[in-house]
């Protein structure tokens, strides 16, 4: 554990709390892509299967359980509790174009032909693109509530902080995970456009609006 990874994880936790807070206070999940949230459940469940057979640390265990539970809770909020505020007609990204290629990549690039290893790789690849339906929705509507942009910024910060974490681990442990690093770079890259608008508009007190 190093400070980059720790603050990355804290940022990830924060993003989830921000999202739940947004849904509760506005009593609405408007502007949130259900598809992206479903993908996150798939990411967490396939990656954290090792909860069943390996122990890393209490920290690791608690975080994994929290990520699975909170992501399922968000689906409940969107599909049951605040269902009328969820508008599937603007959430139109074709998820099969993400899941299919990620499954193929996981079969090619993994650390061993065991079901759990392939699913681990799959979850890493899928996480890197899981935000796309959300970003696509943002692009379509052209604007977002400020709180939603804070959610996305915290989520983007999480993977951005994992990059210095990997650099740190490379020098301190001689360790590098090519699958995680490649997918992580892609994932962070997807946020660059968003970050640009976030820093130049939202943090200057303006509304998040994309140029027409």
């Amino acid at each position: 554990m190093n400070i980059f990874r720790f603050f990355g994880d804290i940022s990830h936790l924060a993003s989830i709390f921000i999202l739940i807070h947004k849904i509760h206070t506005s009593r609405s999940c408007r502007g949130i892509s259900f598809k992206t949230q479903v993908l996150y459940v798939a990411v967490f469940v396939t990656r954290y299967l090792d909860l069943l057979y390996s122990w890393v640390s209490l920290y690791n265990f608690v975080m994994k359980v929290f990520f699975i539970a909170s992501s399922c809770y968000i689906l409940y909020l969107m599909k049951v509790r605040f269902r009328p505020t969820n508008d599937p007609s603007i959430d139109t990204f074709r998820v099969e174009y993400l899941v299919g290629p990620c499954a193929v990549l996981a079969l090619i690039f993994n650390y061993g032909y065991a079901v759990t290893e392939v699913l681990w790789s799959f979850s890493i690849f899928l996480e890197s693109v899981a935000i796309l339906p959300q970003l696509f929705m943002l692009q379509r509507t052209g604007e977002a509530e400020t709180i939603t942009t804070h959610y996305l910024a915290a989520l983007g910060a999480y993977r951005t902080l994992y990059i210095p974490n990997w650099i740190y681990r490379y020098f301190s442990e001689g360790y590098v995970d090519p699958i995680a690093v490649t997918a992580g770079l892609v994932q962070t890259g997807l946020y660059l456009d968003f970050f640009y608008v976030y820093f130049t508009k939202v943090l200057q007190g303006q509304k998040f609006e994309l140029p027409a």
């Binding site: 681990w120 699958i179 995680a180």
Partner: peptide
């Protein structure tokens, strides 16, 4: 687990 995989990360 491979020594070179981030299985200890979240």
């Amino acid at each position: 687990d491979s020594d070179f995989s981030a299985h200890d990360e979240l």
